[in-house]
């Protein structure tokens, strides 16, 4: 008689359960018989770099940094789009031209905003 073709899966599951349980049981027995556990506040501490953690993890960043993001977009990211636009300028359809103008308008708006905020002022 042929064994059930799914038998090996059952055997596999059994082995997969027993295989990790044996070392866990051995470790548990070792702890019970020989080595007493010695937990402590420092041993159980979350961080293990030797330095105690300071303050909260839930900190907030200042929202004022958005001005730097705007300046970065205007003077850095915009150039990446402007160069291919300038290269392909003559062959562009009207829709693409208007789209890039809208994009430029949005960024110029940001530039005006940053200018009015005094972001472009050179501070000594």
């Amino acid at each position: 008689m042929r064994p059930n073709p799914y038998l090996f899966i059952v055997v596999f599951i059994g082995v997969a359960l027993v295989f990790p349980l044996i070392p866990l049981a051995l470790a548990w027995l070792w702890r019970r018989i020989f080595q007493p556990p010695k937990p402590g506040p420092q041993k159980n501490a979350i961080y293990e770099c030797g330095v105690e953690s300071l303050g909260e993890a839930q900190i907030q960043f200042r929202s004022q940094y958005y001005l730097y993001a705007i300046i970065f977009l205007i003077f850095d990211v915009e150039a990446i789009f402007l160069v291919p636009f300038a290269v392909a300028f003559t062959g562009l359809p009207v829709g693409a031209f208007i789209a890039i103008l809208v994009f430029l308008l949005l960024l110029i708006e940001g530039l005006v905003w940053a200018w009015s905020k005094g972001c472009l002022q050179w501070e000594r």
Partner: peptide, 12 residues
């Protein structure tokens, strides 16, 4: 203090 703390965190 950091060394002692690291030593404390080592397992026996």
């Amino acid at each position: 203090p950091q060394i002692v703390r690291l030593y404390n965190q080592m397992a026996d």
